[in-house]
Design a protein around this nucleic acid. Structure first.
Lengths: 317, 317
DNA sequence: CTGAAAGCGCTAACAT
DNA sequence: ATGTTAGCGCTTTCAG
């Protein structure tokens, strides 16, 4: 049997021996039939998040899969469209009740969350949340990370520090921006909208390029830039390159995420790194604990960040 | 009931109506218990393939997942180490017999294949195979694609065309190389080892850089390069840039794969593209047909390629 | 064409 | 501390 306290230790031993010898594995179907559990966890993210070239969510998923091995769960991954419509079908494993719990990774359409809420599935979020009072969530410590990024620039003597961001309603981006503001204010530098570009649509290379262009056209003497993520930082660097502005001699730039190619750029990008595998592991632990009623639903886990200093930031001349 | 021919059409209609009304979904556990099927398909690839920044296998997986929805399967993805050792545990879904069939994506350690062979699972391969007589396989048409790439260069007037590759034992790379040789010979150009670098270890940017360097140091007047994949092409372009060799004015280069960033390079890379989603769809169809005994085991599916002409190739001056 | 019943491999409740 | 049994929701077989 499986960990029933009323069984004598010797019997347990004998049983375990037989399990080994016969290479016995209990049937999940039979177990599931009586326990009304499937042993499956759903993992949902939008298609474009899954397919983007930086394997951020791929790595988060892999973390959940690693941890699932320990917890004896299987993870069923499925994608939804990022413009999920009311007429779109819900993931099959929800309709068929083939999962015990659900992990939502990254930003998903609010309409989708609304539609699945009536299924009352145990649910956890990673790298996004809508209602952190109801569901456990794993987040990057974006606020502290943003502060750290800006503090690094300040420690190099920079005073005119810019923030370039996009999709500012996204909680992660918002927090990074808040970190920027707090760091600026704590250093007794004055915060100015002048230095901030926050109205680009998506935080990608293109918007980084555009934001850098708009920023420099203001001609306000910026010497350092904190980009909301590495993609935007890369786009900004491309613009700097085009107008012959040297990084880091003329302008310093720091990103966020530590994407794969950050270290291969010229110059290699200073950034804030996070362990995406750990994010997956943590969110799997949360859902597992939730299913075992081990935690209250409001738990929040913040994943530590790490300042990675490369060559794109330098002391102000 | 489910498609039993002995039931009258009107009863079928009544039943279908009730299914809709009650939002009925059959229990997979109960079905599985009696049918001895799980309705799950395993998807195995190495960890580094899954995590590499180009979402090639991610996209293949997504294709299988799309097709699985139609076939009413669930796909369980798990990774193995690329240096799989004898002592490493096998994926849990194999030990627990929690899958009906298995998809192997990309190159996996031969030792791993040997170890799982005794489980006699229905198995299909995608983008790799060891023994194509025993298992169905989905492949890029690497040979024809390689020919097409070289023919493109030939059509631009190039005569001294190089091939740079790595991991030449890999069937895909081998076929691309064969395509190169055939195209060269058919055009009545002479094939020469002189123009070929094939002994780099992994086909990545670094090896592309090194191969380009070694090639040009031979000083044999090469005017065009066919790289075994885009990653190597990118590495080669980096070297050309460093030694002030202009692409495409001084040297033309064509890659293979059409990775995401190929179009964003300076200049944008001419390459051979393939639909990775389709690869996933096809391999899922194969395993599904195999499980329904619809096909003999030796079937091969070749995915069509597409020449994508960008700015990295030009007519020979 | 339809109804009835056995049994898949487990868990949980009950008996010993 | 251990043995026995009902029943989870289906599919398949057999009876009508």
């Amino acid at each position: 049997l499986n960990n029933n306290p009323r069984i004598s230790p010797e019997t347990v031993l004998k049983v375990n021996k037989a399990i080994k010898e016969l290479n016995y594995h209990p049937s999940r179907s039979a177990r599931g039939l009586v326990s009304r559990k499937t042993g499956n966890i759903g993992f949902i993210l939008t298609e474009d998040h899954f397919l983007r070239s930086e394997p951020f969510y791929t790595s988060v998923f892999l973390g959940t899969e690693f941890e699932a091995r320990r917890d004896e769960y299987y993870v069923l991954l499925t994608t939804i469209s990022s413009d999920f419509k009311n007429s779109d079908p819900l993931p099959r494993f929800i309709l068929e009740k083939n999962i015990d719990g659900l992990i939502i990774a990254g930003k998903v359409p609010p309409l989708f969350l609304k539609k699945i809420s009536k299924y009352e599935l145990p649910m956890t979020f990673v790298d996004y949340y809508q209602d952190s009072d109801s569901y456990p969530v794993v987040l990057v410590d974006n606020l502290a990370g943003g502060m750290e990024a800006v503090n690094h620039l300040i420690s190099l003597g920079h005073k005119k520090i810019s923030f370039i961001g996009a999709d500012i309603d996204h909680p992660s981006i918002q927090d990074r921006f808040s970190g920027y503001k707090i760091a600026i204010e704590r250093a007794a530098l004055k915060f100015s909208e002048e230095f901030c570009i926050t109205d680009e649509e998506y935080p990608n290379r293109e918007s980084g390029y555009n934001a850098a262009k708009r920023l420099l056209e203001k001609n306000n003497g910026v010497t350092a830039v904190f980009a909301a993520n590495d993609a935007m930082a890369i786009g900004a660097m491309q613009y700097f390159h085009e107008i012959k502005l040297k990084v880091p001699e003329d302008i310093s730039i720091i990103g966020f995420d530590n994407v794969d190619i950050a270290k291969e750029l010229v110059p290699p990008l200073t950034t804030i790194g996070i362990s995406t595998i750990d994010m997956g592991i943590e969110v799997m632990r949360l859902i597992s604990d939730l299913l075992k009623n081990k935690i209250k639903t409001a738990k929040k886990v913040l994943i530590p960040y790490e300042l990675i200093v490369r060559k794109s930031t330098a002391r102000l001349k």
